[in-house]
């Protein structure tokens, strides 16, 4: 597991049933592109988050494939429909096989 990787998400605490909400996500990750040379003159091996997914109560919201051109500390903002109360699950996939996830509950009201 890469060091210091920590997911952060911003989801409203509640919404009206059927509302569209904005979700912001960011994960601390260096996103080493594999194209940069280190101090020793050799290429630093690629190490990135290559996929991000969000789902609500098991139904997909967004699935993003990421390439090395995504900036350090990858940020994704998108919209989701909230049909009922439940839980968003966010998952990030690292080149090294690590999987990072976090969840956020949302109430109807």
């Amino acid at each position: 597991m890469a060091e210091g990787v920590k997911p952060r998400v911003k989801v409203p605490k509640k919404a009206a049933a059927g509302d569209t909400i904005t979700i912001k996500t960011l994960i601390s990750h260096k996103m080493e592109s594999g194209q940069r040379k280190g101090k020793d003159g050799n290429l630093v091996p690629r190490s990135i988050i290559n996929r991000f997914t969000a789902e609500f109560n098991g139904t997909p919201v967004i699935d993003v494939t990421m390439e090395p051109a995504i900036s350090t500390n990858p940020y994704v903002e998108f919209e989701a429909v909230v049909p009922e109360e439940g839980e968003f699950k966010f998952t990030w996939y690292d080149d090294d096989g690590s999987v990072y996830d976090t969840a956020k509950k949302i109430a109807i009201g």
Partner: peptide, 25 residues
């Protein structure tokens, strides 16, 4: 860019819109 790929956004059933924002190199 040296390699042109940036991202591919696939929208699911509960996507509130077919839109997204990110930060790129």
């Amino acid at each position: 860019n040296p390699t042109p790929g940036v991202a591919q956004f696939n929208f699911g059933e509960l996507a509130g819109s077919q839109s997204a924002s990110t930060r790129i190199r």
